[in-house]
C-alpha cells in the first residue's frame, strides 16, 4: 500500500514535511513561505543548555513551533499523538496510514539507518513522513532525501523511541481536517513577520535574537581561557555545524528567510522587502565567510584568524541583522 503522495526535496525537514503534507491536501506553498509563516528564523546561544556536552547555538526556534504556527494561521486542524508503549505507537501509525492519510513522525537520528555515521548524533528533532507500507517495510518520504526510501518496522520503531534530550516518544502528527482552511493573506504574512521581528529584536535577555550574536561574540573571545585550546575549537566546530547542518538552506536559514522576503515582497507589493531580502542575503554571505575562516582556524592553516577576529565578524553580523529586522518591522508598522 502506498499513498499517492508527491515526494519533494526540501532544505529543512520540518518545513519540508509541512509543505509536502499541505501539498497533498492541495495547498501549494513554497518552503521559504512555510519558514516565513512559521516565523522559523531565530538566534540563540545558551551556555547553560548543553547538547553533546557543548553550549547550544541555534538558528531556529524549538522544533514543532513551525508546524503549530503555520497550521494555526491557515486554520488547518492537526492531530498529534505520543505513546508510552512503542507497540501502540506502531499500531496507531498503521491505523491512520491505512486510511490513506500520510503521517508525519518526529524521530531521533542516532539510529537512523540511512544517515551517514558522522551525522548520527543524539538529535531528536528530525521529521519525516510515512506514506505507505509493504510487508514489514514502511515507505518513507524524508524531505532531506532526493528520493523516497524504505525502513523496516524494527528500524522505524528504534528511531521513534530514540532516547536523550527531547525524546520523541513515538510522536506522530497528521492533518485531521481542512474544513476551516483559509488561503494565505497579506495580513497573515505581516503578522508572522512581526512575530519574527519581535523574536529577533525584543527578547530582553542577551543570548536571544540578533543581539545574541554579539553575545556569542563575547563568549567566543573567552573560549580559550574558559575551555582550553581543544575544547574551544570543538565549540567553534559546533557553531559551524549548527549553521550549516543539513536543513538550514545555508547560513542558518538566513538565505531561506531572504528568499521568503523576496517572495512575500512580491505578494504584498512592497519593493522595499526585496532590498531587505538582498541585505539579508549579504548577511548570509557574512555568516559563510565566518564559517570559512573558522574552519581554517581549527584546521590550523597558516594565517588563520584569532578568536578575537572571528568574534569581530560576529559583531558585524549582529549589527547588520538588527538593522535588517528593525527596518522590516518599521516597514510593516508604517504600512498600517
Amino acid at each position: 500500500m502506498e499513498i499517492n503522495f508527491e515526494h519533494r526535496h526540501a532544505a529543512h525537514c520540518e518545513n519540508g514535511v509541512i509543505r509536502n503534507l499541505l501539498n497533498f491536501y492541495g495547498v501549494k506553498l513554497s518552503e521559504p513561505m512555510i519558514l516565513g509563516l512559521g516565523s522559523g528564523i531565530f538566534f540563540s546561544h545558551m551556555p547553560f543548555y548543553k547538547m553533546q556536552g557543548m553550549p547550544l547555538t541555534s538558528f531556529r526556534p524549538f522544533h514543532g513551533r513551525i508546524l503549530k504556527r503555520v497550521t494555526k494561521t491557515l486554520g488547518i486542524e492537526v492531530q498529534e499523538y505520543k505513546f508510552k508503549d512503542p507497540d501502540k505507537a506502531m499500531e496507531k501509525l498503521d491505523e491512520i496510514l491505512f486510511k490513506q492519510i500520510p503521517v508525519g513522525l518526529r524521530v531521533g537520528v542516532y539510529r537512523l539507518a540511512y544517515f551517514p555515521k558522522e551525522y548520527r548524533i543524539h538529535f531528536n528533532g528530525h521529521n519525516l513522513c510515512v506514506i505507505g507500507k509493504e510487508g514489514d517495510e514502511y515507505i518513507i518520504s524524508d524531505p532531506i532525501g532526493m528520493n523516497k526510501n524504505r525502513l523496516s518496522a524494527t528500524d522505524l520503531k528504534k528511531v521513534r523511541y530514540a532516547k536523550g534530550t527531547n525524546s520523541p516518544k513515538g510522536h506522530m502528527y497528521y492533518i485531521k481536517s481542512m474544513e476551516h482552511y483559509r488561503p494565505i493573506t497579506a495580513e497573515m504574512i505581516e503578522k508572522a513577520t512581526l512575530k519574527t521581528c519581535s523574536d529577533m529584536l525584543d527578547i530582553p535577555l542577551p543570548m536571544f535574537g540578533a543581539k545574541g550574536i554579539a553575545y556569542l561574540a563575547g563568549r567566543v573571545r573567552k573560549w580559550e581561557k574558559l575551555y582550553g585550546k581543544t575544547d574551544a575549537a570543538l565549540n567553534l566546530a559546533q557553531v559551524i555545524r549548527m549553521l550549516e547542518e543539513i536543513g538550514t538552506g545555508g547560513a542558518g536559514f538566513r538565505f531561506m528567510y531572504a528568499a521568503f522576503l523576496q517572495e512575500a515582497g512580491e505578494f504584498l507589493k512592497r519593493p522595499e522587502w526585496n532590498e531587505l531580502s538582498m541585505e539579508l542575503s549579504q548577511v548570509g554571505d557574512l555568516w559563510r565567510d565566518f564559517s570559512y575562516n573558522a574552519a581554517r582556524f581549527f584546521k590550523q592553516r597558516e594565517g588563520a584568524l584569532s578568536y578575537n577576529d572571528l568574534a569581530n565578524k560576529l559583531d558585524v553580523i549582529s549589527a547588520r541583522e538588527t538593522d535588517v529586522f528593525l527596518r522590516l518591522k518599521n516597514s510593516i508598522e508604517r504600512g498600517k
Binding site: 532544505a11 521559504p32 544517515f115 551517514p116 555515521k117 532526493m146 524504505r150 531572504a258 523576496q262
Partner: peptide, 23 residues
C-alpha cells in the same frame, strides 16, 4: 560522507541568487 542507503540520496538545499537577482 558515505551514505549507507544509496536510494535516498541525502542532500542540502541552498537558496541562491540567479543572474536576475531571484532566489
Amino acid at each position: 560522507f558515505y551514505q549507507p542507503d544509496s536510494t535516498v540520496l541525502l542532500r542540502d538545499r541552498n537558496f541562491a541568487l540567479d543572474e536576475n537577482g531571484k532566489f
